[in-house]
């Protein structure tokens, strides 16, 4: 039983009650992932498991056995160069207090892949054709699981738009 986090393998906790979020923060010292509501309502704890964005607060750590987890700590290059989306968040003021930011960025990275794959959203007009590009309407609907109480949503959407337009991420 082991879990790979940002490329490093860790043993799973013996107690199945421990959430993936608590494993990251309390046992492994990876405090970039944030504890918000702890009940699936805010998205601050979003991490990427096997390429898919999920909530680490509602994931039991044992459920992630054998999976590959990426958190905000694993996104920058080894030389410290920020991930393009991290850089875009800074340039577009996609944050104020910063508490929701790790969840926003992990969520957005996986969201970009969903859009590129052509997965539909609730606001996609034609389900069989899929989304017609990364419109603000599509991005806002797809990012609705990540709340920002400072109100940085406009900057967040702009940062994502830049990444989608530039082909990075």
């Amino acid at each position: 039983m082991a879990i790979v986090i940002n490329g490093t393998e860790y043993p799973l906790p013996d107690d199945p009650r421990i959430s993936l979020l608590d494993l990251l923060r309390e046992r492994l010292g990876l405090t970039g992932t944030k504890l918000g509501c702890n009940q699936g309502g805010c998205g601050a704890c979003t991490v990427i498991i096997d390429g898919t964005r999920v909530l680490s607060c509602l994931t039991l750590a044992v459920q992630a056995d054998g999976r590959e987890v990426w958190t905000i700590e694993g996104l920058a290059a080894k030389d410290g160069q920020l991930h393009p989306l991290q850089q875009a968040f800074i340039e577009h003021d996609g944050l104020q207090c910063g508490y929701c930011t790790p969840g926003q960025i992990c969520s957005a990275i996986a969201m970009v892949e969903e859009l590129r794959r052509g997965d539909p959203s609730y606001v996609t007009a034609d389900l069989t054709e899929g989304p017609m590009g990364a419109t603000r309407h599509e991005i806002r609907e797809r990012m609705s699981g990540n709340l920002c109480r400072c109100g940085a949503h406009n900057g967040i959407v702009e940062a994502i738009e830049e990444i989608m337009a530039g082909g990075a991420a």
Partner: peptide, 19 residues
Amino acid sequence: YPMLSRAILAGASAQIRNM
């Protein structure tokens, strides 16, 4: 069955639908 796609996409958030 487009109503099924739309109903699921109307529920929760992307993270929760993934789980």
